[in-house]
Simulated scan of single mutants.
Amino acid sequence: MYKGQVGIWGRASSAAAGSLARYRERARVKDREREARLAEANRAAGTGPRRPPPGVRPRPALPPKPVAEAVEPVPQDDSASR
């Protein structure tokens, strides 16, 4: 084979790579279109973000703490600490 010539295997390999690239691009475009349709349908239906699966429970909200009754502070006797 002479320098600069592309063999049959080289051509076939390039053709296969091109076909695969076109296939992937088509699949990517279809996927984007599907995602856009799905997002639009969700917006139209008014559904929010996905909820956790049924087996997962959210943490219960803690009840508010009761307000402690006001207690006057006990005066400190400074003579004992000296």
Rank of each mutant, 00 (worst) to 15 (best):
P49M: 10
K65V: 11
A61S: 12
L62Y: 10
G46I: 03
A45T: 00
R57A: 15
P60G: 06
K65D: 13
P66G: 06
P64R: 13
R50K: 05
G55R: 11
K65S: 13
G48E: 08
P63G: 04
N42G: 07
G46N: 06
A68D: 13
V56Q: 14
P60N: 08
R57W: 10
G55I: 07
P60E: 07
A41T: 01
E69D: 11
A61R: 15
R51C: 01
V67K: 15
P64K: 12
R43I: 00
P54R: 12
T47R: 15
A70T: 04
V71I: 14
L62P: 09
R59F: 01
E72Q: 12
P52V: 01
P63I: 00
A44C: 02
P58E: 08
P63C: 05
V67R: 15
R50N: 02
P49H: 10
G46P: 10
R57G: 11
R57S: 15
R43C: 00
P49W: 07
A61W: 05
V71Y: 10
R43E: 07
A45N: 05
R59K: 10
A70D: 09
P66C: 09
R57Q: 15
P53I: 03
K65Y: 04
A44P: 00
P73Y: 02
P60D: 08
E72K: 12
T47I: 12
A39K: 13
V56L: 13
A41I: 02
G46R: 02
K65W: 05
P58A: 06
R50M: 01
A44V: 06
V71N: 10
P58C: 02
N42I: 13
